[in-house]
Write a protein that binds this DNA or RNA. Structure first.
Lengths: 195, 195
DNA sequence: GTCTATAGCGGGATAGAC
DNA sequence: GTCTATCCCGCTATAGAC
């Protein structure tokens, strides 16, 4: 304790990422300065560069970590027999995973423009993998005659849009619980894919 | 011709707005400089300030013009007898109005964070008016027993999200025509509000 | 690992000539 | 209405002491 050098390595790193995520979600990547991040972390700006090569890499790491966590969790979903049961699981999972991570969702979506081309390609590939999970469920349901889906790709993107749009208006202190909203959204999804 | 002073007033103004809209959609408000805008318009940076008080006002004007045009067009929709017919009109109108205005849609949605509080309040009010049009249709359909909507507000926001999500993946040179997409989306909306 | 100090650049906005 | 020139500020990133 009381020494200033080398003591906080394990705590400063996560704090930098958490602070950057919050500030970027609030003001946008381009509008947030390394100075601002440093000030809220409680270090001088030079110290940040012990934890990231540069500002761009910091943004990429935040988005990458979010996408990797999302994919890992989505792959752990149970493999029910019926596409309908799997679609319900996916819908509820998507909402439950994303709602408590509003900042990461916002950043991962809004800051794509500010990634370098190489970094963008990586994030985009992860995003497509996630969409692929839903598309596979829809394709199987269509093949088995459980769903009536005009176009698998369009419906996939439409449903992702429907679910993701939730973040634009959901408020934690709102009138409805997560479970209530989840059930309403599942109702919309179910009807949308049914004949 | 050939004179440099006073000749281009009528042309520079629209050009400034068009250029700013395009650049801000592409890179984000904070990432675009007045110097960049001026360069693409073909004037020096000082000249921009004949057309806007400052950068913030320029952003606000772009968003405000978009919302006003949207509301004016939405209010011109025909007043069919049945809520179902009005919902179809609204759905198709929303898509047809927004798809050709990708830049304005993007900016109006992504740059809300960068508005001053007073400007934000104004844009937000216009946005709520637009949502109100859809909500009124849903409420009437529910009251008449044509629709089975669990919660009018939630369904309104969900459908807006569904329709707006279209911009995230639609490409003009894609496999499907606007009309085909429009019809698929109308199918999803129709089923979502039906019992 | 963190600090202080600074290099080097680009930002928004304005003044005054034409 | 546009230009040139400039003020003043804040930015990212690095160097070198501790």
């Amino acid at each position: 304790m009381a020494r200033k050098q080398g003591a906080y390595a394990d705590i400063t790193g996560p704090k930098v990422r958490a602070t950057a995520l919050r500030l970027i979600a609030q003001h946008g990547y381009a509008a947030v300065s390394m100075r601002q991040i440093a000030a809220q972390v409680g270090v001088q700006v030079g110290a940040l560069y012990n934890y990231t090569a540069d500002k761009q890499t910091l943004l990429f790491d935040l988005m990458h970590a979010h996408m990797v966590a999302l994919l890992a969790a989505a792959r752990d979903l149970p493999q029910h027999d019926t596409p309908m049961a799997r679609l319900e699981d996916f819908t509820r999972f998507h909402i439950r995973f994303h709602l408590p991570r509003a900042d990461a969702v916002f950043v991962s979506y809004m800051e794509l423009r500010n990634l370098s081309p190489e970094n963008f390609a990586q994030i985009e590939a992860l995003r497509r993998q996630y969409e692929g999970i839903l598309e596979a469920i829809l394709a199987e349901g269509e093949a088995q005659g459980d769903f009536a889906v005009a176009d698998t790709r369009v419906t996939t993107m439409a449903l992702i849009g429907l679910l993701t749009g939730l973040h634009d208006w959901y408020r934690r202190d709102g009138r409805l619980s997560i479970t209530e909203i989840e059930t309403m959204y599942w109702g919309l999804v179910r009807k949308a894919v049914t004949a």
